[in-house]
Amino acid sequence: MTLYDLFLAPLADYGFMRRALVACLCLSLGCGPIGVFLMMRRMSLMGDALSHAVLPGAAIGYLVAGSLSLTAMGIGGLIAGLSVALLAGAVSRATSLAEDASFASFYLTSLALGVLIVSLRGSNVDLLHVLFGTILAIDSEALTQIGVITSVTLVALSIIYRPLVAECFDPGFLRAVGGRGPLYHIAFLVLVVLNLVASFQALGTLMAVGLMMLPAAIAQLWSRNLPTMLVIASGTALVSGYLGLIASYHLELASGPTIIVTAALFYGLSIFFAPSGLARRYFPRPHLTG
């Protein structure tokens, strides 16, 4: 088998592989930076919670459209995810409940409703699609949708970058200078949900956060500079997407999980070999004079 057969032939031969790769590229560009900000805000697990919260909306979209229409499910998921994010945020601001506690309550309710709705009419196959995604079945319409979400994410992030950094780093300062922190928090949550909806189509509700959090964790292991971290996160997400797709093609594995496992392999390597990783601990470099 030549290198061409190994790395390029699957893409040259099959349109669905090319579409899947473009989807991965878009998701990497959007989800990578979003994941880094989620991690910086100590909301890593909240992203996971939100990805489950998308489910009932997607399920209703599926019931209404009568088939696995990605657009209908995407719109439903967006409404459900945003509702849960905003309601949970509002409840934690209005009551003494911490944000993680109110998120947990809302997403569990949302997840249960979602599974109930899917089981009302769907088959087990549909449920599997919803849970694990269908990256190889992405059509042009879905691809456009993902592309639009990525573009919106990148433009919005570049606009709200400074207040978002201030809000993560020193929320008290932002409040003191009248910087409308909650507004940027909500704008950020909207971006999180948008990207979850995009990756939900490819990776399913269970692994939608995979391309957000694993690259973000890798980035944090390699760099202590935010712009560099954003680039590393997107880069590793993209490489994981490509290698995962190729591996899943040759080894005849499910694509979504293979992509996430590839990212997990990079994460494992990073744990050992990154500047702040384990290898440094066991093979320390000599210290400096000052």
């Binding site: 910086m40 950094v165 993560c168 780093f169 020193d170 929320p171 008290g172 300062f173 003191a176 944090q220 760099s223 202590r224 500079n225 935010l226 971290m229």
Partner: peptide, 17 residues
Amino acid sequence: IGYLPQAAEINRRFPIN
């Protein structure tokens, strides 16, 4: 108005220079 809150309210692990 300039306000310097107690240092504990600031995320010192944030990757900013």
